[in-house]
């Protein structure tokens, strides 16, 4: 039986989803849906379902837009953030959520990611980061760890991986955070904070791809991969309570950066008002 959440916020006639058994993407989509439900149901938060738009690019992650029952647009490979910029800039009153993957947003779409962060335009970007190109069958992506194998790295990957959240923060994003498929409750909270944040938010969520990444690299199946996240990814309170030594092989689940800076579309609305006042129109 589908849960109440699934009934209310997902397009059940388009389920089941296309993701492989054991894929982490379904959990992350669920986190997004719960985050939006809690915000929409909260009378103190001015976010409405009808003013929320889901934008995605191309890849496994990007099928999520079609399953969520909102206005949704499944765009071209790499361009989700650029389409979303057009939507948000044209209609700043809309809440625009981008669902993307590691290849979609940091390889082919890397330029749009850093420039949207630089502008501090009020988008919320959730990356379904599975370290691999899944849709095309397991080629290495910008987040595949050095030395790991992929169909296009049969002798091991020479590239150094991106940390997408740090990349976005370095480019000017005013809210960045890291979640994981295992840490569903924490990740949902991080997404909620990202949506509430006025400015560019990015939540880099580690997914698991047992089919193409895990199997090729001796990481086991979905259970073993989620077990790794449980053991190596640590929510903020516990993480900061650890010694530096203990943190060495751990990954923080939590907010990585959070600053305040004027949001881009609001600045432009101010510019319009200024110009029109000067020209008397």
């Amino acid at each position: 039986m589908p849960s109440e959440l699934v009934h209310k916020f997902m397009r059940i006639d388009h389920l089941p989803h296309i993701w492989c058994a054991g894929c982490g993407n379904g959990i992350i989509m669920h986190d997004v849906a719960v985050a939006l439900q809690e915000l929409i149901d909260d009378p103190s938060v001015p976010i409405s379902r009808d003013k929320t738009v889901i934008v995605s690019g191309i890849g496994c992650s990007s099928r999520a837009a079609g399953y969520l029952d909102f206005d949704s647009i499944h765009t071209t490979h790499g361009r989700a953030i650029a389409f979303a910029t057009g939507i948000k800039f044209a209609r700043p009153e809309l809440e625009v959520i981008v669902l993307t993957g590691d290849g979609d947003c940091s390889a082919i779409g890397g330029n749009h990611l850093i420039h949207a962060a630089r502008r501090n335009i009020g988008l919320t970007v959730v990356t379904f980061n599975n370290d691999i190109y899944g849709m095309t069958g397991g080629q290495y992506s910008p987040t595949t760890p050095t030395g790991d194998k992929a169909t296009t790295a049969p002798y091991g990957n020479l590239d150094r991986p991106f940390d997408i959240a740090q990349l976005a923060a370095g480019a000017g994003a005013t809210y960045t955070a890291r979640g994981s498929a295992y840490h569903a409750r924490e990740t949902t909270e991080l997404i909620k904070q990202g949506v509430l944040h006025k400015g560019f938010s990015l939540i880099d969520v580690y997914s698991v791809c047992p089919t193409y990444y895990g199997r090729k690299n001796g990481k086991g199946g979905a259970v073993e991969m989620l077990q790794w996240q449980k053991e190596h990814m640590v929510p903020a309170a516990a993480y900061y309570a650890m010694s530096e030594e203990a943190r060495r092989d751990k990954v923080l689940v939590g907010v990585l950066s959070h600053t305040e800076h004027p949001e881009y579309t609001q600045q432009y609305t101010g510019l319009i008002e200024r110009v029109r006042a000067q020209s008397g129109k």
Binding site: V55, T75, G86, F89, Y268
Partner: peptide, 29 residues
């Protein structure tokens, strides 16, 4: 454009410009 209440954005590249135009149009502009 600001004089008539419209919006201008210089995007990071040509691909983004085309994408943003399509996005704006889906939003009704």
């Amino acid at each position: 454009l600001p004089e008539v209440g419209g919006r201008f954005i210089q995007m990071e590249d040509e691909l983004a410009s085309m994408a943003a135009v399509l996005g704006a149009s889906t939003a009704g502009v």
